[in-house]
Design a protein around this nucleic acid. Sequence first.
DNA 1: TTGCTCCTCACGTCACGTGAGGTGGC
DNA 2: TTGCTCCTCACGTCACGTGAGGTGGC
Lengths: 146, 146
Amino acid sequence: MSVATDRPLRIGEVAMAVGTTARTIRYYEELGLLGSATDRPAGAHRTYGPADVDRLREIMRLRDLLGVSLDELQEIVEAVEARAALRVEFERSHDDARRQEILVEALGHIDRQLELVRRRVAELDGLEQELTARRRRVKTLLRVPT
Amino acid sequence: MSVATDRPLRIGEVAMAVGTTARTIRYYEELGLLGSATDRPAGAHRTYGPADVDRLREIMRLRDLLGVSLDELQEIVEAVEARAALRVEFERSHDDARRQEILVEALGHIDRQLELVRRRVAELDGLEQELTARRRRVKTLLRVPT
DNA sequence: TTGCTCCTCACGTCACGTGAGGTGGC
DNA sequence: TTGCTCCTCACGTCACGTGAGGTGGC
């Protein structure tokens, strides 16, 4: 779907792709949410790969949909990193007990996020119920079915 | 469920009831989201009735669940007011054509809000799908069913 | 009268927006 | 070389948080 060249992207391209601004991306880097290339010379352009784009997209989705502060996001991102690290360890490990441990931990991370998502959905469902109830009342008064 | 006295509430009580702070309530009043008692002497305590509490609760819900800015909220609140005014007019009117018009307009307001709510729910559903998919993969690796 | 909550400034903070002035890559 | 996007300060803004100092009602 996207342009399939693997050429590194510049900050403006990334911003456009994920629907934000360059300023926001720099800000997230400053906060440590994005992890900057440590070898970038002062004043040089930032470059990004597909993994960076995915990561930013996920951060923004959590921010928007769950309404968490960037402080809380920091924690979530750390958990995501931890999961990635665990994944690598998992792939390499041949210790079955350790592999089990890693999976259980990963499950915990996922379940905590699911909790947040489901609570939100429930709240939104409540709002939707109310709105549809109102809608029905108005419709009834209009004498037009459904 | 709540304390059933109809005694007017003070700002701290309202804040506690709806889960916010006095500062926020004053700020919303300043922005015109809440409509202040124009006859309150300078320095006198603010008082609130049940209708005020309901209104604040609705504003906060829209803010949190839909993630709209207070600027956009302003518009929504105005729409809510308009609807209330139309409701009064509707009750009093004996002109059937006018009554129809009012209902149609009310329907439009409701449908616009439903649109926002449903879009959000769809986005959250997407996120939930992804998380449950991940969960399933981990579970499979753990060799524990569901 | 003593606490408590309230009041009004007013400055601080978080998550960016928005220029100002300058440098770097097709 | 000319545009364009990028860079780094740095101040502005929105939605409040947080005292500072003072007044008002059970």
